[in-house]
Amino acid sequence: MRFGDFTAVDAVDLALEAREVVGLLGANGAGKTTLIRLLLGLVRPTAGDVELFGAPPSVETRRRVGYVPQTLGLYEDLTVAENWAFVTVAFGSGRPPLPAGIVDLGDAVVGSLPLGIQRRVAFAAAFSHRPELLILDEPTSGVAPLGRARLWQDVRETAEGGAGVLVTTHNMEEAEQCDRLVVLVDGAVAAAGGVAEVIGDRTVIEVGGPQWRLAYEVLDAQGLSVQLHGDTLRVPGSAAQIEDLLAPSGLDVTVGEAPANLEEAFVEVVSARSARRDGTAVRP
């Protein structure tokens, strides 16, 4: 998929099965939105195929897709009932009653509702025509933890009802709830699989002890991305390398190895890819 001379999405293989929740991760500009546009049939690929339910995306396939954009896509000046009526008519799903979760909110103007509630309305509208593919862009941005858990309950129920769900997110907690992850870097798939597969056997080095602040200065001066967790530092690299860097200063610190978390693994995947593209080496 190219825009002008810029290759936005390059030879991406992405298959989505029914009943499956797939998380699409990537830095800004990695191609997530272009992929969504391809699936919605809003742009066409320069090479390769996009196939939805066995055909190229079209108005017909669009009727079988549910989409919640990050901005929700609701009419803020209309009531919940008016939004619901508009969407259900547009999708030709008759005049179903408001679903249980929002039935009491019919007369409320959408723009006057808290964001978490607006999200529930947007979800209900996107689910209203029983889509076979559900596309959610940053679905729980700004939602409190309990509200997020409830929205995920709806997502899971939709998947268990037979739909495939594609979620884009910057939220690692949300990514960990997906059955499978696809990590996009510069428009190409850089890693894919379950959370454990994406993390693999990657590790980080933990540095702790009373002189962690001085250890931070030493490691930071080496250009390492040192991250503070409580009063422990987490830094990429090997234990031997970090010990060597810290040894000359004779600091009272402990150095140990710990499994990387998803965010750390993601950052490593992206840096490795970017380094290959730029032909430059990054420090591990």
Binding site: G26, H170, R213, S225, V226, E263, F266, V267
Partner: peptide, 23 residues
């Protein structure tokens, strides 16, 4: 870090970590 991708988020947290390490 709201709406910030994970790579930029790590860079923001590197700044935050540095400020705390500096006192």
């Amino acid at each position: 870090t709201t709406g910030v991708d994970p790579v930029s988020r790590a860079e923001v947290w590197r700044l935050i970590s540095g400020a705390a390490a500096g006192g």
